[in-house]
């Protein structure tokens, strides 16, 4: 199962990165991360929040959105391009005629969307750590390596995967119903993503970040990911896809 899915993902990743919209996202994420991370850190220090606990809380809350939520845009767009794009470009029929199982096909699509998203997320994490600590080194050296603490780091490593998985699952379901990439982009980019960002930031603002919230968040996300994947597999129907793609 993995062999075929990986083969599919490898080829498709190469193809999706020829799309201008998809290529723009990593650049945008990096720029946002550098500018926003830098400015936010500088502003935090300027406000006099030089106590390690305060500084860590402020940076963790805002940077988690930049590091975790922004990179999710990429899997959302890739999933739209990779799934609905097949319909739009009429390449779906020959692909469905190959001996790929539904599971392999879906796994391939998930990997296509997840791998670049995670690479950007982790690359972005490294960059954000460098920018924040670079500014700290210049203006408040005693706060060096206060952020990211273990919890923030684990959050930045695990949550992008779980959120991206959730977003791709949603996109797979949406893509079965959307007929154009643009339609899927609109639904995914303008509805799912802001909804997730608001939910997540609200969650953090209301409850703060601590180990219990972290574990609870992971449990909720794992369950949501699993349920959505099952729904995506159940709703995946070749007959329906062929009929809808004309």
């Amino acid at each position: 199962m993995w062999k075929k899915a990986w083969l599919m993902a490898r080829t498709e990743i190469r193809m999706v990165f020829k799309s201008r919209q998809v290529k723009t996202i990593p650049i945008m994420v990096v720029i946002m991360s550098v500018i926003f991370g830098g400015l936010w850190t500088y502003w935090t220090l300027l406000m006099g929040l030089t106590n390690p606990a305060d500084f860590n809380f402020m940076t963790s809350t805002i940077m988690s959105i930049v590091i975790i939520m922004l990179p999710i845009m990429l899997p959302v767009l890739i999933a739209a391009d990779s799934i609905v794009g097949e319909k739009e470009r009429h390449t779906l029929v020959p692909l469905l005629a190959t001996p790929l199982t539904d599971g392999e096909l879906l796994l391939g699509k998930y990997l296509t969307a997840l791998i670049p998203g995670l690479l950007v997320a982790y690359g972005n994490l490294l960059l954000a750590v460098a920018v924040v600590n670079g500014i700290v080194l210049l203006f408040a050296p005693h706060l060096l390596w206060v952020w990211p603490d273990t919890l923030s780091l684990l959050q930045a490593l695990i949550l992008p995967l779980l959120f991206a998985f959730l977003a791709v699952g949603m996109m797979v379901i949406i893509s079965g119903r959307a007929n154009t990439v643009y339609e899927a982009y609109q639904t995914g980019g303008f509805i799912i993503l802001p909804a997730m960002v608001f939910a997540y930031s609200g969650f953090l603002a209301g409850l703060g970040l601590n180990w219990m919230i972290f574990y609870l968040g992971i449990i909720i996300l794992v369950i949501a990911d699993f349920v959505l994947y099952r729904v995506a597999v159940k709703l995946f129907n070749r007959d329906n896809l062929i009929v809808r793609s004309g």
Binding site: M8, T11, R14, M15, K18, T91, V93, P94, L95, A97
Partner: peptide
């Protein structure tokens, strides 16, 4: 089975070369 679909001419991956299109499907067909 092999399938040449209706309107088969417009069913290729334009982001891959002709050779790579065939290679990709060759792999998918084992």
């Amino acid at each position: 089975t092999g399938l040449l679909p209706e309107d088969g001419a417009n069913t290729h991956y334009d982001r891959l070369s002709a050779y790579k299109n065939l290679e990709y499907f060759g792999h998918l067909y084992d």
